[in-house]
Amino acid sequence: MRFTKKDILDMESLSVDEINLILNTANRMKEISIRPIKKVPTLRGKTVVLFFHEPSTRTRISFDIAAKRLSADSLSISANSSSIVKGETLADTVRNLEAMNPDIIVLRHSFAGTPHLLARLVKSSIINAGDGMHAHPTQALLDLMTVREKKGKISGLRIAIIGDISHSRVARSNITGFTKMGAEVVIAGPLTMIPKGIESLGASVRYNVDEAICDADVIMMLRIQKERQKSFLFSTEREYSKVYGLTQERVENARSDVLIMHPGPVNRGVEIACEVVDGPYSIILDQVTNGVAVRMALLYLISGGTRNADTD
């Protein structure tokens, strides 16, 4: 199968076959990162612009490492180092970037739909590295990869996503991605954080965390942001961690082969207890490792590569 997408904008626009191709390619890419010389020449001469319009460490570095391991030239721009601080519109900034002939623009932006806007404006490939509350497809793909790696499959699994669903692009992309690949997704959290009509993405809502996680194969905890208190979305961190947090006790009552995930950054002791983060069920750092592999796969596939990267 050939990968023909120009852009990676969200999980909705990827087919099951495309997702499988990405995951299979990522599996092969993973090996490159454990070689003594972690570099293949596959994308030599390609330019990857990492345009991060919102603070990010993990995702930006993950893309940067992915590009470098494939020998692409990568460079980073952030909102405050770009002309946007001088009043240039985003569209103009990107048209100027385009004029320098990059191959791929990886975009992180705090507003939903921005990658879609840019994809219409420029010929370079756009990879969405997170847009507002909308989508974070590379995170969903690395989560799918990690679960498939640990469980040997995705179809038929039950995934529980717990926390602030409303503000989470990770939740949206994972609901779409996991249901598309045949898993069942249940979500739970304070009702103030469950957005209207979320069922239309394929998730079913539970009011109670214990009910949501009791037969889950995977529990994915979402970061709670303290500033949400100001918009009356929850009472106190103390109550949040008690009612909605993943405590050691809750893990003990979960399935014996449960996997615990978190997209990071983690608020230890708030949405997830320290001993759970560091405990035997946690695959949080595997997610980060696989992030590099998935992003290598995407850079490779979207560049239209036909050879297997690891044969170079």
């Binding site: 909705e12 939903a112 847009d131 509350m133 909308h134 949206r172 957005p195 209207k196 009509g197 993405l201």
Partner: peptide, 19 residues
């Protein structure tokens, strides 16, 4: 309104826009 930019509902949820 609280920062909303489109009608609240399933579509806003899917699009990740505040409703």
């Amino acid at each position: 309104v609280a920062g909303g930019v489109m009608n609240e509902g399933a579509l806003a949820t899917r699009m990740g826009l505040a409703g």
